[in-house]
């Protein structure tokens, strides 16, 4: 099997290894890096369960081979909380609003929502729906997810300058 060396920065920590050339980024994260928070849903780029941040931008990690990500920085759901374990405002809002049931799409939803808030701290409801449109959820009907992003938006707006 063809193998290739890959260097990544994952959640702020350097990682390197030799991986099968045909390993997708999501399989690499799960099987080689050992971070199983990122999930595989469809492996053809529709469901968004495998979303990660690639140099800060949300992408589908099933639509990339790990070798393509060589030298890049990846953030997974495991990297969203503060180093001391404190939940991010979005994670906390997801919990508060019960924006999930089975939890399978949740990491991808959180990644998409984090990317939105990072780019636009005061998104409209339309912006929120647009940002989540590439992530499918079968449990929630999306309502409590949208509610959670709204709650995070409101709370982050309340933070004194």
């Amino acid at each position: 099997m063809n193998r290739q060396a890959v260097r990544l920065t994952v959640n702020g920590k350097p990682w390197h290894g030799e991986v099968p050339t045909r390993l997708t980024l999501v399989d690499c994260l799960r099987e080689e890096v050992g971070l199983t928070g990122t999930h595989v849903g469809c492996e053809h780029g529709v469901c968004g369960a495998c979303s990660v941040l690639l140099d800060g931008e949300p992408v589908r990690s099933c639509l990339m081979f790990a070798v393509q990500a060589d030298g890049r920085a990846i953030t997974t759901v495991e990297g969203l909380a503060a180093p001391d374990g404190a939940l991010s405002p979005l994670q906390d809002a997801f919990w508060e609003c019960h924006a999930l049931q089975c939890g399978y799409c949740t990491p991808g939803m959180l990644i998409a929502a984090h990317a939105l808030i990072a780019r636009n701290p005061a998104p409209s409801d339309g912006d929120i729906r647009e940002a989540l449109a590439g992530n499918l959820c079968r449990c929630t009907g999306y309502q409590q997810i949208v509610d959670a992003v709204r709650l995070a938006r409101r709370r982050m707006g309340e933070v004194p300058p």
Binding site: G48, L54, P58, A112, A131, A133
Partner: peptide, 9 residues
């Protein structure tokens, strides 16, 4: 074109 995540790549 696809979704935002697709357009990012």
């Amino acid at each position: 074109v696809g979704h935002g995540q697709i357009r990012n790549r």
